[in-house]
Design a protein around this nucleic acid. Structure first.
Lengths: 242, 242
DNA sequence: CGAGTACTTGAGTCCGTTCAATCCCAGTGG
DNA sequence: CCACTGGGATTGAACGGACTCAAGTACTCG
């Protein structure tokens, strides 16, 4: 029993641009099914040529690359509405893996239909490109963080980012969010060790910027945190949903 | 006097996929002209909503973001065949600037024609998306470098990357390439200070991996450098050219 | 020949790492 | 009911890679 695109619950959220009419029905024709995966399972694997392109319907995960010697870098966090596997669908092989950190549901689009989608609907094709450009921007932000921010600033940056993404995808309960990522994962996303990340989070707590109680993150001083994180508050958040 | 797309000199290069027929003539209709800029000039500016989308016809540059306090992070190096200004054409404003490090020639596509291109040619639209996905992959590689490689590995990584890009765009003279980037710029791309970058380059020289003489970089031990840089030699290089 | 820019090198400091040990808590099986 | 287990979070102490500040060299350009 899969969800009908015309009933897609994500469409309700403010971050996603509304469809102008009949477009959900169009997308429905491209959806081949749903993939349900458990916490810890891989949606796509580095090196593999994924046979599908996915849109995240629910759940969160991480997008990461590993080196031969085991070092891991988390490139980005995966939230509802994100495209997964575009590289594999377009180019040769995936340069990263995606792992679920909660149970996830993914809408499945077979790769051969992607080309069909480009031929049939130029506006949907435009949206795919738009999302690719958005991904590029998110990676750029992380690059600036890793390259030019201090450790404390980087921690503020991810926490701010995660908070925003939880809120905009409707996964926040009140003003605090239940993080599904461990400190080790946060550390792997900002290029620090878990130990040092822990110390820096402690510092943010002591300075009253955040609080963390039983896995929930609360931002106590949003302006101060954003200032530390060097995040532009004016950036538009709205985006298309495929 | 602008170059006719049907005569595009880049098309000759091995890295670029051949057009199947009549496609150059199609692209010609979208080209509104050429932009010539001098060394040090900005092609696009961070924060601006660029009125154009460009393809680099000749010359090299840097794509970078700056923070309020002046810190700068180079996101990527810009070479012939690269798309410039896609974010500005699709979304709201550019999150980065592009500056010429040699004289550059850019093919100009007005942003309103981008949408027209999507409507008219699904294969060209597909190529634009392909290039966006490629950019995403290059950024991921840099992210892994900044987050998980040591200083020495990072220096090896950029140098290897630059060498490859010079060679594949036909800008190499023999086995050595004339770098158009200063050590300070290389430092800004790998998240290190110029001073430390200098010391690490010295080390690579002492170990016999590279040599640098009057601005030219020669890779003396390609395998050793690639091993240090953690670069996958098997990756396909061919890509579309818009 | 002076000025500017890039590159090079030295010495001291600090941020982040490494290697541990400890704590906390949710399961789980006796 | 409680000891046992294991993963995550936390803290301590010592080390080291990268930074800072500073001086000096090499080269181009007016």
């Amino acid at each position: 029993m899969t969800i009908d695109c015309t009933q897609c619950p994500l469409r309700q959220l403010d971050v996603f641009s509304p469809f102008t009419g009949g477009e959900e029905a169009f997308m429905k024709a491209f959806k081949a099914g749903e993939l349900q995966i458990e916490t810890g399972a891989q949606a796509v694997l580095q090196g593999a040529r994924s046979p599908h392109l996915y849109t995240v319907l629910s759940g969160v995960g991480i997008r990461y690359a590993t080196l031969e010697d085991g070092r891991r870098q988390i490139l980005n966090f995966v939230f509802p509405g994100d495209l997964v596997g575009l590289q594999g669908a377009l180019m040769d092989a995936m340069s990263h893996s995606v792992e679920a950190k909660t149970a996830m549901t993914l809408c499945v689009f077979p790769r051969e239909r992607l080309w069909e989608l480009f031929k049939t609907s130029s506006s949907r094709a435009y949206d795919v490109t738009w999302l690719a450009a958005r991904e590029e921007r998110l990676l750029s932000d992380n690059l600036v963080s890793l390259g030019r921010l201090s450790g404390l600033e980087r921690v503020a940056h991810v926490l701010q980012l995660l908070h925003t993404r939880y809120v905009e995808t409707g996964l926040a309960e009140g003003d605090s969010v239940a993080l599904h990522f461990t400190q080790a994962e946060i550390a792997d996303s900002i290029g620090l060790t878990p130990v040092h990340t822990n110390r820096l989070m402690k510092k943010l707590r002591e300075e009253g910027l955040i609080s963390t109680r039983d896995g929930a993150l609360t931002v106590l001083a949003p302006e101060a945190l954003a200032a530390l994180a060097k995040i532009d508050p004016a950036r538009k958040r709205e985006r298309p949903l495929i």
